[in-house]
């Protein structure tokens, strides 16, 4: 009788993913990417290179964008993990996701989740980033379809839309300088 791989040592791990508590049984050597995709069942986070060189696997841990392929799942215990599935509410997309679709920032879409998680964190820290700031912030994410242009467009567009929503002067156009 062959030994099955199920006999590999596994430990119970408590993860908090997208606001929900999850109990999973994983190997010490399982990465957060492995566990999110397989044990938790959230496949929105993608494996593009598994070596930190594409950014497709970015998730947020306590609001910071990190590479889930180079993070051991056990190291993410006790933290708030957010994946692309946790960005939107059940009924509506975030302004960033909306802008992403409208700007054409996804073509094949494989890099999208990683970019969204990076960009979402950027916008929380810098609500009105310049194009240069955006490029720098997403410079660890690779996209092979768009040439990044519509990605930068989408982030800038989302920032502008959110800024307009938040701004008390939003309805009092055209005097945006008063808000500065």
């Amino acid at each position: 009788m062959q030994q099955t791989p199920l006999s590999r040592p596994r430990k119970a791990l408590h993860l908090r993913v997208n606001g929900h508590d999850r109990e999973v049984y994983v190997r010490d050597a399982d990465t957060l990417l492995d566990v999110l995709r397989e044990a938790v069942g959230l496949t929105g986070t993608k494996r593009g290179c598994d070596l930190g060189t594409c950014g497709c696997c970015a998730v947020q841990i306590d609001g910071r964008p990190v590479l889930s392929c180079l993070t051991l799942a056990a190291e993410a215990q006790d933290a708030e993990i957010t994946t692309v599935e946790g960005l939107a509410g059940p009924e509506r997309f975030t302004p960033l996701q909306q802008a992403w679709a409208e700007a054409g920032a996804s073509q094949c879409g494989f890099c999208t989740a990683g970019f969204l998680m990076t960009a979402d964190a950027l916008l929380r820290e810098h609500p009105a980033p310049s194009r240069e700031q955006i490029k720098a912030a997403v410079s660890g994410n690779l996209c092979r379809c768009t040439g990044f242009i519509k990605i930068v467009d989408a982030i800038a567009r989302s920032a502008a839309a959110q800024h307009a929503l938040r701004s008390p002067c939003a309805t009092a156009a055209p005097a945006p300088t008063q808000c500065a």
Partner: peptide, 9 residues
């Protein structure tokens, strides 16, 4: 160094 994502870890 590397990328912003790598620098987070």
């Amino acid at each position: 160094i590397a990328t912003p994502l790598i620098r987070q870890s």
